[in-house]
Design a protein around this nucleic acid. Structure first.
Lengths: 277, 277
DNA sequence: TTGACAAATGACTCGTTGGTCATTATTATA
DNA sequence: TATAATAATGACCAACGAGTCATTTGTCAA
């Protein structure tokens, strides 16, 4: 388990620097100070490694942002905090962000493409719910364009500080993007992306998670965990899924217990969405 | 010469579909109906091929846009026409656009990176001169942010129609982006990219072409060309570089002769910049 | 100390692919 | 037609790198 983490860390460094295809398994294992065979004890293949990396960090980032956004009551702060948290994440995990941007369009591995599309749609959804909450009905006609503008901002501004070594003033960046977004949201009148166009692009729909899937996820995680508050909380949350016995406050508390454990972020995110907290 | 073109066309198709790394030389030659050896009569390596493709199309697109923008007098139309021409180019050369987006970050080949940075800076320059012409002094503090917004728009909106098979209404798209750009240009007050930050990122400066370089370019092109008006015009333009004997009108005329020949677009673009037409 | 089990090693296999070159086909010239 | 020059071919080579597996090393309970 520790070995796996070591490989992921070291590999990420190399991938960010050289790209996935040009980094050999040998390089990774040399850099880790382990043998090539040891690599294949932790990962079935080189592809599985990058898939694991993507999941690991996207889960971390997505669920973190989602939590932050859902715990801000004041709409005036919302957008600012969102941008701030987003770029803070990219900055903190800059190696991952580089990898993610560089490898955005690996055409070969089917599973990889599906995964990327999944997270792309996921973030679009996040943007959309943010927009709807902030501007409500008034932006109905232009909301899909807003999503794309936000995506554009994220893209260009993040590659700016990722690939040039420039100092990064997160506060100004967030402020600046808040202003841009507000200007567009409040005054744009000519949308390009109509609801129909949007639907055309929604083809590979983002499925909802079922109760059974959630239970499986929890079972899996529980096996990997040591005895701890997190593990106990997860087990209780599983009980709750089967037969809801606890009041909402308890469920929220249990989720809070679990939220900060890096291994549980994804599950806690899914559960929060499931319970619509 | 014809063979080279055939290879470029067919290879572009395959690259757009499968990516550069996963397309083998064998696949390319099979698709062209020629032998593997024949490939290496036209290109020294597989890398040289992609470099040639990038140059070929970027020159085409860049010089075309530049020409259009420089031949519009009415500022009211300018931005619209710019966006329209830009996306029309991407649409027309969609295979190239796909390749370009997909391979934006090949870390391995040094020459490739330099080339991409060069064209990136080139387009930034184009955006900047457009912005300065349209909005003048008033946008001085926010002009670099405007560049990045435009880059962001180009990026997200083009991948939208490149990778999803959706119908494309160029007019609405251009209109929509014009509105967005105008809104931002006229009301943005919080820039993120300060002049100093901009300078930090300008490190690999875009060199000016010298008279000698231009003469070399022309000599090279002249050798490749059949007897034609274009060839004669180029020779005269070379004379003019050495000892300027003709009035401006003549030079302009000569450039006009050369402009539409696909092989001469780049030179005509460089000359126009040199003479500041 | 021993022996059973698990973890780790790295030499090796094997498929792939960019690039070469001796040979053959084609065209131009005398 | 003969000869030279040029174009084209595809079998072959060498390098590389993902993944395997027989063997060694380490661990721990009896």
């Amino acid at each position: 388990m520790i070995k796996k983490q070591l490989i992921m860390e070291k590999a990420l460094e190399l991938f960010a620097k050289q790209g996935f295809a040009t980094t050999t398994v040998q390089q990774i294992t040399d850099y880790c100070g382990i043998s090539k065979g040891a690599f294949y004890l932790s990962f079935k293949s080189k592809d599985e490694l990058i898939l694991a990396l993507i999941d690991h960090f996207m889960i971390q980032i997505t669920s973190n942002i989602d939590y932050i956004v859902n715990n801000i009551d004041d709409d005036a702060e919302l957008l600012y905090t969102f941008y701030y948290a987003m770029f803070e994440s990219f900055h903190k995990h800059s190696d991952f962000a580089k990898l993610f941007i560089k490898e955005q369009s690996h055409t070969f591995n089917e599973e990889f493409i599906v995964k990327m599309q999944y997270y792309d749609k996921l973030s679009e959804r996040m943007f959309l719910s943010l927009i709807e909450r902030l501007y409500g009905e008034t932006v109905n006609r232009i909301k899909y364009d807003l999503i794309y503008c936000i995506k554009g901002f994220m893209n260009t501004y993040s590659s700016l500080f990722l690939f040039y070594n420039v100092p990064l003033d997160l506060k100004v960046l967030a402020q600046s993007l808040v202003e841009k977004t507000n200007l567009l949201a409040r005054q744009m009148t000519v949308p390009f992306i109509s609801p129909e166009l949007w639907q055309l692009m929604e083809q590979p729909l983002l499925g909802e998670v079922t109760k059974e899937q959630l239970r499986n996820f929890i079972d899996q995680k529980v096996d990997e965990l040591e005895e701890s508050v997190e593990k106990e909380s997860l087990l209780l949350l599983k009980e709750q899924l089967i037969a809801s016995t606890y009041p909402q406050a308890v469920v929220r508390g249990l989720l809070e217990n679990v939220r900060n454990h890096p291994e549980c972020k994804w599950i806690s995110y899914l559960l929060r969405r499931y319970y619509q907290f």
